[in-house]
Nucleic acid binder design. Sequence first.
RNA 1: GCCCCCAUAGUUCAAUGGAUAGAACAGGAGACUUCUAAGCUCUUGAUGUGGGUUCGAUUCCUACUGGGGGCACCA
Length: 572
Amino acid sequence: MSIKGKIHKIVKNSLADMGAEDIDFAVEYPASLEHGDFAVNAAMVVAKKLSKNPREIADELASNLKSALGKDIISVSVAGPGFVNIKLSQSAILSELEGAVSEDEEWGKNNTRSGERVSIEYGNPNPFKEMHIGHLMGAVIGEAVSRLIESSGAVVVRDTFGGDVGPHVAKALWWLLREGITEPGSATEIGKAYLKGSNAYEKSETAKKEIDSLNVTLYETISMAENEAELQNDKRKLLAMWRTGRELSMQEHRRVFALIGTKFDYEFFDSDTVAPGMRVVNDGLKKGIFEKSDGAVVYHGEKHGLHTLVFITSRGTPTYETKDIGLAFLREEHITSGKVIIITGTEQIGHFNVVLSALSEIAPGIAKKTTHVPHGLLRLTTGKMSSRKGNVITGSGLIREVIEKALERNKDPIVAEQVAIGAIKYMILRQSPGAEIVFDTEKSLSLDGDSGPYLQYALVRAQSVLRNAEKSKDIKNIDAPILTDDAPETPYDISRLIVRFPEIVANAERLLAPNLLTTYLTELAGEWNSFYAKERIIGGEYEAYKLSLARAFIKTMTNGLAILGIEAPKKM
RNA sequence: GCCCCCAUAGUUCAAUGGAUAGAACAGGAGACUUCUAAGCUCUUGAUGUGGGUUCGAUUCCUACUGGGGGCACCA
C-alpha cells in the first residue's frame, strides 16, 4: 500500500474512533514543500460534527499518525486552521523513488483504463483550406489528451474530420474553374483559390449564385461517385478535380501533423457522412425528432433549453449538424469504442449541445458515451484572425517562424525544430484547455523561463551529468537500477517531487487537463536546476545516491514530456 | 434581445473550497577557478465592483461592470 493510502486509512480509523464515520476528507499535496509531503484536512471537516476545536482533533490525528507511521516519517505537525502536515523520512521517500529508477518507460503510468478503447477526434482541418493555428492548437491538445489516456492503459484511436464538401469547397473549385485550372498543383494554390472564391462570394451577386449552384452540383456529383461511368463529362472532370484537390490538401495537412507528432488512424470526410447523416435525419423526421420549417429540416432545441438549428437546408443539402450525426454512426461502425471524445474550439459548444441532444433521441447509447471537450481559441493581440484582413497565421507558417528563432541559438536543425515545436506545444499546454490564448508572435513564444526549452534544457543537463559520470572510472554500475541507502538523512526536495509523478499523471488524465502535468514538470525542472546549481553531483558527497536521483529525474522528465508530446533533444 | 464562457502583478499564465494567491517575462540587485548560463540566488508588484453561503471563497450562489463566443438554412 502506498504511504498515501496508509495515511488515509489511519485517519479514517481515527475519525471513526472519535465517532465520525464516512467523512469525505483529503490527503493532499500541500501548497509548499515546506509544509511537508502530505497534508490532511480532516480536522476542519469534522470539527463541527464533533463540536470540537479543529486544532484539538488535529492534535489527536497527528499523534495517531505519528505512532502508526513510525519510521516512515520525520515529523507530523499541526498547522494553520487545523491541517495535519506529514513530512516523510528518507527511507519512505526511497521506497517510493524505487519505481522512478526501475520502472523505466512504465514509470508514471497506471492501469485505470486497461482494456478500454477510446476514440478521439481532433485537429479537423478542412481540405481546400490552409491549416491555421487554431487547428494546430486543437491538434496539440488532442495529442496530449490522447497520450494521457494511453498512459492509463487504454487503446486510443485517433481520428480527424474534414469538410470536403460544402460552400468552402465550392468557392475554391469555382475560382479554379474560372481560371481554367483543371489540375491544381499545390495545397497553397488551392488555399489561395478558396480565398479568392470567398471574396468573390461576398462581393458579387453573380459569383454567389454560381458558387451556390456549384455547391449543389458538387453534392450530387459526389453522391454519384460510385457510379462514375454514368456521370456526364463535365461532372466527371469536376469529380477528378475535387479528388486531386482534396488529396493535395490532405497531404499538406498530414505533413504539418507529422511535424507535431500526430498521426491519425482514421480520416473522415463530410462526403462520407452525408449519406448516413441524411438517412438518419430523414428517419428522425418521420419519428418527429426533427421537423419541417420553411422547407428546411430543423431540430427544435428550444424544447431542451438550446436553440433551433437547421439540419437539412431548403435546397436539400445537409448542414454540418447532419454531417456530425452521420459521423457518429460512421465512427461507431469503423472504430467501435467505449468512449468518444470530440475536441474542438469553444465556438462549437452550442453546435455540439444541439447535435448531442438530437443524437440522444436517435441513438441514446452513442450520445451517452460521447463527450465534447472544447478548447479555447487562439487570439492575436492584433485582433481576431481573418483571412480577408490577411492576418491569418497558418500552422506551418508559425512553426517555420519559431524554428528560425530557435536556429539563432542552436545551429543543429534537428534540435532547433525540437525546441521550436516544444515551445509552441508548451505555450498551448501550460494553460487550462478551455482558456483562450492571447498570442503575440513577438513576445508570447518564449524560449526562456517558463517555457518548453526550459524543460528540455533541464533534462539535457541531467543527461550530460550521467554521460560525464560514465566516463569516470571510479563510478560503477552507472545503469544499475538500484538505489543506494547511502543518502542524507533529510531527503532532497527534488526527490520529494519526483515521487508525486504517477499521481499527477493520473489526476491530469482524470480531468483531461494536460496543463496539470505541464505545471508539475515546470516545477520539477526548476527544482532540478536548483539542485544542480547547489549540489556537486560527480565527486560530491553521496555521489551514488545523487546519480540515482539524476536518473530518476531523467526518467520522470522524459516520460512526462512524452505524455505531453514534447520531444527531448539529446543536446542543446 | 436570449444563451454560454471569461475577468488574478505592467504583460502572458497557475492555484481538487484550505495555510503567507504561485510562476515566467519585463524592472532592480547578485553569485560563479566546479558536472551545459536556454541556468542559479535575492528583490519590486495582483484576485473588476457590491452582496450572500461557509470554520475558511480566486474557486460556489447573486446583482452589476467590462471582454469573448453562439443564436435556421456556413463549417
